[in-house]
C-alpha cells in the first residue's frame, strides 16, 4: 500500500493535507490510482489522529518500504526541510510536490522537487529551486529567481526579486520590486518579518521587521 506522509502537524502542514488528492490527480495520477493513504508524521506526537488523518511517528514512517512511500515536509524552517528531506531521500523515499487546487504554476522552467504551493501563482518567467514553500494568497511574479528551501508566507507578492537559499519572507511583507536589469535581492538565510516594508536589498542572514523596516539582528550564514 502506498503511503504519503506529510511531516509536521503543528504549523503549515495541515493546510496542504486536504490538497493532496487534487494535486495527485493533476501531477501524479499514477499514485492516485493506487489509492494511497495519507498520514501525518511527527517525531513526538501526543495524539494518534490529527484533523482526520492518522499520525505516525518518524521512526515508524522510516520503517515503511521505500518504494511505496512518498513524503513532503510541512515545516516553515528551510533548514529543517533540507535536513529531513535529505535524510528521507537517502532512505529511498520519494519527495512529492503538493499543489493547491487553486494554485497556478506557469513557470517555463519546472520548479525544483518538493514544492509546497498554496493558493498562489508563479509567473511564466520565474524560476524556483528545491523544496519551495509558498502559503496561500501569494504571487511569485515576473522575473523572480528563488533559491532552494525558500519559504514564502501568505499574501506576499514579489516581482523582479531574487531570493537566496533558506530565506523566509513572512505573511504580508511588502517587497518593492526591483527592475528588469537590477532585481531586488534578498540574501541567503534572510528573514523578512510579517508585514515588513522592504525597499532596499536585504543582506545575507539579516532579520528585517516593521514598517518602516529595521534590521533586528544578523544571523550567521553557513
Amino acid at each position: 500500500m502506498v503511503t504519503i506522509g506529510l511531516i509536521g502537524i503543528g504549523g503549515v502542514g495541515p493546510e496542504f493535507m486536504p490538497q493532496i488528492p487534487w494535486s495527485l490527480e493533476h501531477f501524479n495520477p499514477e499514485l492516485l490510482q493506487q489509492n494511497p493513504r495519507l498520514v501525518y508524521v511527527e517525531s513526538e506526537s501526543e495524539t494518534d489522529h490529527y484533523a482526520g488523518h492518522e499520525v505516525m511517528s518518524l521512526d515508524d514512517f522510516k520503517a515503511l518500504p521505500p518504494e511505496e512511500t512518498c513524503f513532503n515536509v510541512g515545516i516553515a524552517d528551510g533548514s529543517a526541510r533540507k535536513h529531513l528531506s535529505e535524510e528521507l531521500e537517502s532512505h529511498g523515499f520519494g519527495l512529492l510536490g503538493i499543489y493547491h487546487s487553486r494554485s497556478q504554476c506557469l513557470a517555463h522552467t519546472p520548479p525544483g522537487p518538493g514544492i509546497l504551493l498554496g493558493r498562489a501563482g508563479i509567473s511564466v518567467n520565474s524560476t524556483v529551486g528545491r523544496s519551495l514553500l509558498v502559503l496561500g494568497a501569494s504571487l511569485i511574479g515576473q522575473n523572480c529567481a528563488l533559491g532552494d528551501y525558500v519559504t514564502i508566507g501568505s499574501q506576499v507578492c514579489i516581482e523582479h526579486t531574487h531570493v537566496g537559499d533558506f530565506a523566509q519572507v513572512w505573511n504580508g511583507a511588502i517587497v518593492t520590486p526591483g527592475t528588469a536589469d537590477k532585481p531586488r535581492r534578498i540574501g541567503q538565510g534572510a528573514i523578512i518579518g510579517m508585514g515588513a516594508y522592504i525597499d532596499e536589498d536585504v543582506p545575507d542572514g539579516a532579520v528585517m521587521v516593521g514598517n518602516p523596516s529595521r534590521e533586528l539582528r544578523r544571523n550567521p550564514v553557513s
Binding site: Y50, R119, G136, A137
Partner: peptide
C-alpha cells in the same frame, strides 16, 4: 469568498 479556517 476564499476564507480558510484551519484545524483546531
Amino acid at each position: 469568498y476564499l476564507n480558510t479556517l484551519n484545524s483546531n
